[in-house]
């Protein structure tokens, strides 16, 4: 009979894999800051460059975006959404034509269908922290996922504390006080 094993963490979440992911993020972050940016662990030919992904993301989302999270998502999104790089080129072209600074400046000009869907998919990835919301899918961000930020002045991001022992009370700011993030 085997000896009882204390470390019975599911292998997909094992420390070894997280170490690998952390290392990957650091590596991709280094690549993203260099002139030779191509982050594509699965399929180099289909890779989307992290700077291009960050450029379109910054136009679609008027918030501070984490470069490491973006690099990881850029590396993965091409294999999930084939042809996304061409979509992004077209979205960028439309945004530049409108001299857009924020999404409201050009989103109505995106044609219904594939381009608009791609734009919404990129926004969704940043807000939810996943490219695909299904069992077994990779989580790129949790506490940095943007959907938790509009309420972060009041509402706890589950498992993270924003106060101390019995340090909360019944008061809350008005809805109109949107946090900056």
């Amino acid at each position: 009979m085997k000896q009882p094993v204390r470390d019975d963490c599911p292998s997909e979440y094992s420390l070894a894999r997280r170490d690998f992911l952390a290392g990957s993020v650091v590596l991709m972050g280094a690549l993203a800051s260099s002139a030779r940016v191509v982050a594509a662990p699965l399929d180099a030919s289909a890779a989307l460059s992290a700077p291009k992904f960050m450029e379109v993301s910054s136009l679609l989302i008027d918030h501070k975006l984490d470069g490491d999270v973006g690099a990881r998502m850029a590396a993965a999104i091409s294999s999930i959404h084939p042809g996304i790089e061409q979509d992004i080129d077209q979205i960028l072209e439309i945004a530049h034509q409108k001299n857009a600074k924020i999404v409201e400046d050009f989103f109505p000009d995106l044609p219904e269908g594939r381009l608009k869907d791609t734009a919404l998919a990129i926004i969704s990835a940043w807000y939810t922290g996943v490219i695909v919301d299904a069992p077994g899918s990779t989580v790129f961000a949790f506490e940095l996922a943007l959907m938790y930020q509009p309420t972060r002045d009041v509402m706890t991001i589950p498992s993270y504390a924003i106060s101390g022992p019995n340090g909360w009370n019944a008061s809350a700011p008005p809805l109109s006080d949107m946090p900056k993030f």
């Binding site: 959907m147 509009p150 509402m155």
Partner: peptide, 25 residues
């Protein structure tokens, strides 16, 4: 906390920008 499900629900409405954040909140 309902922020997670609020985020998913607001995204399903196809909202973007300030309208998205306002609806999540």
């Amino acid at each position: 906390a309902r922020s997670g499900q609020a985020g998913v629900a607001a995204l399903k409405k196809g909202l973007v920008g300030k309208a998205l954040d306002t609806e999540i909140r």
